[in-house]
Amino acid sequence: MLAYINKIKEISDRLLKEQKVDLIIGFRKGTIPMMNEPCFVKTSSDVKNLVWDSNCGINLANYLTNRKEKIGVIAKGCDSRNIVTHIIENKISREQLVIIGVPCKGMIDRRKVAAAADCEVTEVLEQADVIVVKGPGIEKTIKKADVLQDNCAICIHRNPVINDEMVAGPVEEQKGVDRYEDVRKVEAMSPEEKWNYFEELLSPCIRCYACRNACPLCYCPTCFVDESKPQWVGKTLDTIDTRTFHFLRAYHCAGRCTDCGSCTRACPMGIDVRAFTKKLEKDALELFGWEAGMSVDERPTLDTFKPDDPDKFIK
């Protein structure tokens, strides 16, 4: 995966020089380890800043919303599915985009690395299947597979579903992954257990809306939490309000979420926000055979009606 960067730079440079795009959206090195940040590269001389490693977990589709330029965008499997959803939902047109596809083997979870290191992490070096973590006076080698983001560990769409250029041949998709073990656990709980589980899950929430801001699906000009007439949700940290926010946001993502993990990744309090969206992702798959963002020709399942849609839940 580390070898991709040369190809990424080569393609980006070409696209900019040939004026096929006005800008490239990719990643550059962040100021602290494991925190690569999205960047807009507008000139060929800046192409050198682009990086690619296992710290590029942020979903770049989020940066395409309502842009007017011609854009070259670097897309992992999940990003590409969100780009598809963006195209369907009129957030950007296909013609504006040159999609530079990146076959992905999963991104690492900085919290897992920090926990494994058990000290302040000052430098992280990445090799093929391992990462070397350096801190004050220590150096530790960790298997990448042990510190993958939870969503990456169970990802079954690592290759972009839509692209114009590919930086490498496709990677092997993971087979036989149990995607919904965690959801089933919650489903099996009694109402009391569920209540306690979600109460516990949300107790650290400070309503900073980082999850919403990181999510490519959350592009409404005015989010419902910010509306005042009617005021759907109170603005306090009252548990009812917090719960309402998370529930409704999950519903807004139902049938559209690609489980890219941006929400969980962005949460400063370490809440597993995916716990909400995943249940609905599972329902969309099991009830409607639907996976979001797989084709630009089909609208999300909840936007459409088919005579054979399941209706057992009505009874």
Partner: peptide, 21 residues
């Protein structure tokens, strides 16, 4: 229209074709 995000859900779900862009 100031709040509309142009996502097109209304166009897709309306059985009477009332919404348009």
């Amino acid at each position: 229209p100031a709040i509309c995000s142009s996502c097109g859900v209304c166009l897709s779900i309306c059985p009477y074709s009332a919404p348009s862009f």
